[in-house]
């Protein structure tokens, strides 16, 4: 624990309590985030109940291959992030493993954004942006795509923040300026990363699966 005391910040006297407060704080923030996305998904649900056929038709117009690939990418990134968090919590020296996994996590997050970018390009070329040029003729298909762009856009912003946080840890680590033993920053970043991942699992079901069962 002697190394860990280098992480002690004002106003704390005990590293354990500081660490616990960090965990409590991030969980409170995640509760807030869940209500943020929860309200957005509620909006989607209400609109879908009111326009079931249009949402099924619009759901079929999404590109499920991009969505599925991204789900695989993001779930794998959660695995590498978990390895980082468990390795720091173990108390042993896993420096190379932690740095490798941080790098892979950030790379997978970036890969997700790249795939998303290709998907967006594809959507724009197919005129799936609400407006006068919109491709689908069902009455409320534009509403589905309005929510599609909002949901995926807000999620991508959250993921970008996550990537920057992980990159920051990785860069500090490579310059040997990151305390690796039980660092609360690593656990807090990990929790945030997993939340962004879990939200994507919901979005995948909401965006890509409607209208494809039959």
């Amino acid at each position: 624990m002697s190394e860990a005391t280098g992480l002690l910040r004002e106003p704390w006297e005990s590293f354990e309590r500081q660490s616990e407060a960090g965990t409590l704080g991030i969980w409170a923030f995640l509760a807030s985030e869940i209500l943020f996305f929860g309200a957005l998904m509620l909006t989607y649900t209400v609109c879908r109940i009111e326009n079931a056929d249009a949402f099924a038709a619009a759901g079929r117009a999404t590109n499920i291959w991009y969505g599925t690939a991204n789900t695989a990418i993001l779930l794998t990134s959660s695995l590498t992030m978990t390895v980082v968090v468990q390795a720091t919590a173990s108390g042993d020296n896993f420096r190379r493993l932690i740095l490798a996994c941080l790098t892979v996590t950030a790379a997978l997050g970036t890969a997700f954004l790249a795939v998303k970018g290709f998907e967006y390009k594809d959507d724009i070329e197919k005129h799936l942006v609400p407006g006068a040029q919109f491709a689908l003729t069902e009455k409320s298909a534009q509403l589905f795509f309005g929510l599609y762009w909002t949901l995926t856009g807000v999620h991508a912003i959250h993921l970008t923040i996550g990537i920057l946080l992980v990159l920051r840890l990785a860069l500090l680590g490579f310059r040997r300026r990151l305390e690796l033993d039980r660092n609360p920053e690593i656990r807090v970043t990990g929790l945030y990363w997993h939340l962004v991942d879990v939200i994507w699992i919901f979005l995948y079901a909401l965006i890509y699966l409607p209208g494809r069962a039959s």
Binding site: E50, N51, P130, S140, L143, F145, T150
Partner: peptide
């Protein structure tokens, strides 16, 4: 994006 537009559902 027509989220609250009644004409678009």
């Amino acid at each position: 994006l027509p989220i609250f537009d009644p004409a678009q559902g």
